[in-house]
Amino acid sequence: MATDTAVATPEADESHAHHPPHLQHHFVSSEQQFDSAKLGMWLFLITEILLFSGMFVAYTVYRAWHPEAFTEASATLDWVLGGVNTLVLLGSSFTVALSIHFAQKDDRMKAFWNLIATLALAGVFMVIKYFEWTAKFEHGVFPAGFFDPHGGYYETLASIPYTGQFFSIYFVMTGIHGLHVLIGMGVIGWIAWRTFRGHFSSEYYTPIEITGLYWHLVDIIWIFLFPLLYLV
C-alpha cells in the first residue's frame, strides 16, 4: 500500500498499473474491494432485519391475541407526528442517495451538503420522537410493569386489559429503531467530515455507499413501523 509504484508483474500488468491508496493489498482490484464491502454490508443488514423481525413477530402474535387492546392503544398515538416523521426519514433517504450520486460524479461539496441535510433530517426525526415519548410519559404510559395511564383519554386505557402490551412493544420497537437512528447520525457525521476533507472520490466512495445502505434500512424499518403502530 505504501508503495504505489509496486512492481508490476507482466500478467497482472493492468491491475497494478493503477494502484490507488485506498486499495488494500489483499484485494485484487478496487472493484473487488468495493463488491466485498457491499456484500458484507448486505449480510449485516440481513442480521438487522432479523433482529427487528423478532419484534415484528411479537407484535403480530400479541395483536392477533388482543386486537381490541391494540386498536384502542394505537389510537392514542398521533398519526400526524408519525406521518411527518415518515416524510422526514424518506427525505433523509433521498438526500443520502443524492450524496452517493454526487460522490460518483466527483462533486465533493454537493455530496457533503447532502450528508449534512441527512444528518439534520435525522435530528428532526429524533426531536419529534422525543416529544412523542415525553407526551406519553406525562400520562404514565410506560412500558411493561410501569404502565399506569392517567389523565384524559388515557384513563380509559387503564380499564382495557392488555393495552400495556401494545405500549411495551411500541417503546421497545421505536426505542431500538431510535437507537439505530442515533448510531446512523454518528456514522453520517463522521462520513460527512471525511467527505469534506476530500477522502472520497468517484474512484473510492465505498464508506458513503455503505452508510447509505444502513440508513435506507433504518428508513425501511420505519416504513413498516409507521402504519403498524399509528394507523391500523
Binding site: H18, S29, E31
Partner: peptide, 14 residues
C-alpha cells in the same frame, strides 16, 4: 477494464 475502479458503476440519475 475492471482496473478502472468505479468508473463503470451505475450512477442513478437525479
Amino acid at each position: 477494464a475492471h482496473s478502472d475502479g468505479h468508473a463503470d458503476h451505475h450512477i442513478i440519475p437525479f
